[in-house]
């Protein structure tokens, strides 16, 4: 068992008149780290809550390893969704929350949980509500890792953590993932920090999937062209420019699409530097409402 595969077909969730999810069809392979990106309200948490059997789609279907997870005892104990706040019992002491999740998850690693909580000095006898935002996030992230669930979903668990803490958790995640491969879905607004951790990237916008691809393929979807502003402009005149940044006389333009080899040679000759489009830029472009029409 190296993790659960994830499949959704036309999954739709409505809250009143608004579509939180609008026909989401998605396939995520088992045993990999997948990224789920989207702006606030794009439907990320709703999608993850379907996979975690918190609720069912109003229409469409969800399957883990080919089966509907809702009320499937094996799949539900093998599926763990952690958010920074909101789902844990805030009035319980940390050690009691730990005990509950240990009770519910046969693969729970108490040693790993203790290690992480000790490292970040989390007081176990205090109730969750009396911890700082960052400490609450540490508890949630710890439970997510220590559960060792074949489908582990970490939804913005970094909220409130400071940069060194986030870094250590990313390292802990990678180390534990390497030792205990499983399907992991990470959702975060700090795209630059997790970009290289992800094997695939799925972007949701307004309840729809706008992109779901291998992270490596994504890198070739666009190019940054950096150099003298006038040369950059001349070279990118006929291309789809989605972003420009100026630093003195130097301009960096972001173009979409795979450049032609002859164009690359010419750009090189003109002393322009070509680079990969940061995922962040691609994300901003794909989820900007100006471009929606």
């Amino acid at each position: 068992m190296t993790g659960l595969s994830v499949t959704t077909r036309d999954a739709t969730v409505r809250y009143g008149a608004t579509h939180a999810l609008d026909g989401v069809t998605l396939d995520l392979a088992p045993g990999r780290i997948h990224g789920l990106l989207g702006r606030n309200g794009a439907g990320k948490t709703t999608l993850l809550s379907l996979l975690a059997s918190f609720q069912r789609p109003d229409s469409g279907a969800v399957a883990l390893a080919g089966r509907d997870p809702f009320e499937d005892a094996t799949l539900m104990q093998d599926t763990c969704l952690m958010r920074a706040t909101g789902d844990l019992a805030a009035d319980l002491k940390v050690r009691d929350i730990l005990r509950l999740h240990q009770t519910g998850r046969p693969r729970f690693d108490q040693g790993l949980a203790d290690h992480l909580l000790d490292r970040f000095d989390i007081p176990r006898r205090r109730s969750l509500a009396r911890l700082s935002r960052g400490q609450q996030s540490v508890v949630a992230a710890t439970l997510g890792l220590a559960s060792r669930a074949p489908l582990t979903m970490l939804d913005e668990v970094h909220l409130g953590m400071d940069a060194p803490t986030r870094q250590e958790f990313t390292e802990a995640l990678l180390a534990d993932f390497a030792e205990h491969p499983r399907t992991i879905i990470v959702s975060s607004h700090l795209i630059q920090e997790i970009e290289h951790v992800l094997e695939t990237v799925t972007i949701l916008h307004r309840g729809r999937v706008v992109l779901s691809e291998e992270a490596d393929d994504l890198r070739t979807q666009g190019t940054t062209v950096t150099g003298r502003a006038d040369r950059v402009e001349a070279m990118t005149r006929d291309l789809r420019v989605v972003g420009r940044r100026d630093l003195g006389p130097t301009r960096e333009a972001t173009v979409l699409g795979r450049p032609h080899p002859a164009w690359v040679t010419e750009a090189d000759r003109q002393g322009l530097q070509l680079g990969a489009v940061p995922l962040q830029d691609l994300f901003i472009h794909l989820t900007s409402d100006k471009d929606a029409a």
């Binding site: 990999r32 780290i33 870094q167 990313t170 990678l174 180390a175 951790v197 992800l198 094997e199």
Partner: peptide, 15 residues
């Protein structure tokens, strides 16, 4: 090891 490489540079172990 891939694990050490992955954690040191914070990249995916599969990569």
């Amino acid at each position: 090891s891939t694990t050490q490489y992955a954690t040191t540079y914070r990249i995916n172990p599969a990569t």
